[in-house]
Design a binder for these strands. Structure first.
Lengths: 210, 210
DNA sequence: TTGACGAATGTCAGTCACTGACATTATGGT
DNA sequence: ACCATAATGTCAGTGACTGACATTCGTCAA
């Protein structure tokens, strides 16, 4: 869900032929981008290439995705809603860091399911500044916002006054980045959930470092 | 210093007329960008506008700065070397989080000195996604790298294996972002160093949150 | 002083991501 | 069948950035 682009009130049943076709072009665009990025690299692939490979006009591509990078991270961007739901599902009396670890564990399963795509994202992010930049600026920032409001809710504090929600969220996102990098170095042959949990756990000991 | 762009080995004395002129065009470009961003907004200002206001060719602008955003963040980008030096200057037996707080305090003074520019950066980042994105993707990531190597050095661990350096660095950068936001909300009429220190201090208690 | 060398800049043409405006086609409801 | 409108197509831009080559200007040595 979440078309990555703003489309307000659909007056059409969510499962009409129209919406199926729309979803289909969206999927074809993602698949085309995937394959082209894989085959000829990110920078060497133009949005026109992608559109033609998906057999749509370039303009249509930009109606579905706001930027070229969004094509790559469509799935991870939507995953922030999964994160939000997972967080809200944790019991309210659970310590915040525990709740985050549990929610991330749940999310981690979903993430790693698409192993090949995750590895592609990682490869491209490692070689292309535009990609890693977009990840930090858009994807990670989006996840972070979800974390912040969830944490502030639990602590019942104002995240504009109390620095802890944002600081904890930042630490958690860094932990996820580390876990992802380690998982990527291992070519996906590692327990992502365990890696992430270990990194998240380390947050508790940050103040005691020599 | 660090010209924000790669120029390897200058065979010319660092204080020749040539280098002074070069530095001068660089400064004029920054000043021109500053004023135009202030007057007509970020998006409404083209790189050609800036170049003409500084009385150079557009091509020259892009020889001094790799992107339009870099014009805005030239100073903050260079500040990462100040951060590195400040960190290295801290005694080796000092606990890491303390060292970071002290180094940031030192850095904070430098930062807040240019109050008007900081407020301009904040205003633009708050209204223009391209600006806030660049900040996260380039500036903050750069500072974070400095933090990571400094922390890993002190702990004598491999930052690729041990998640703690990167996690702590991420938390610290988030703390700085919070402090900057609070300082900005107060229109610069607040003790930035105190705000940053309070946010950084909160890292120690992250694991104990209910 | 002069002349050679090279750094900084200028000029120009091009690529490519992205956008606004308007025309066309395809669906869904009537 | 008919109309409203969602989805797409077409086209002509704008603007950031780049490569190639010409020109100017500071530096230094003979």
């Amino acid at each position: 869900m979440a078309t990555s682009v703003i489309d307000p009130s659909p007056r059409v049943p969510a499962d009409s032929r129209r919406s199926r076709k729309k979803q289909d072009t969206r999927n074809r665009l993602i698949a085309a981008a995937d394959e082209l990025f894989e085959r000829q690299g990110y920078d060497a692939t133009t949005t026109l290439d992608i559109a033609e490979a998906a057999d749509v006009a370039q303009r249509t591509l930009f109606r579905h995705f706001p930027t070229k990078e969004a094509l790559l991270y469509a799935e991870l961007d939507d995953a922030r809603f999964v994160l939000r739901d997972a967080l809200n599902a944790r019991p309210n009396d659970e310590p915040v860091l525990i709740a985050i670890r549990e929610a991330m564990a749940e999310l981690g399963e979903t993430i790693v399911a698409n192993r090949e795509r995750r590895l592609l994202e990682a490869r491209l992010a490692a070689t292309t500044p535009a990609v890693s930049g977009h990840f930090r600026a858009v994807i990670q920032a989006g996840w972070e916002r979800e974390l912040i409001v969830a944490i502030a809710d639990r602590l019942d504090v104002d995240p504009m006054q109390d620095p802890r929600p944002e600081v904890l969220a930042g630490a958690a996102m860094s932990a996820c980045r580390v876990a992802t990098r380690q998982w990527t170095v291992a070519e996906g042959d590692a327990d992502y959930v365990a890696l992430a949990d270990r990194a998240l756990e380390s947050i508790a000991g940050l103040g005691a470092l020599t």
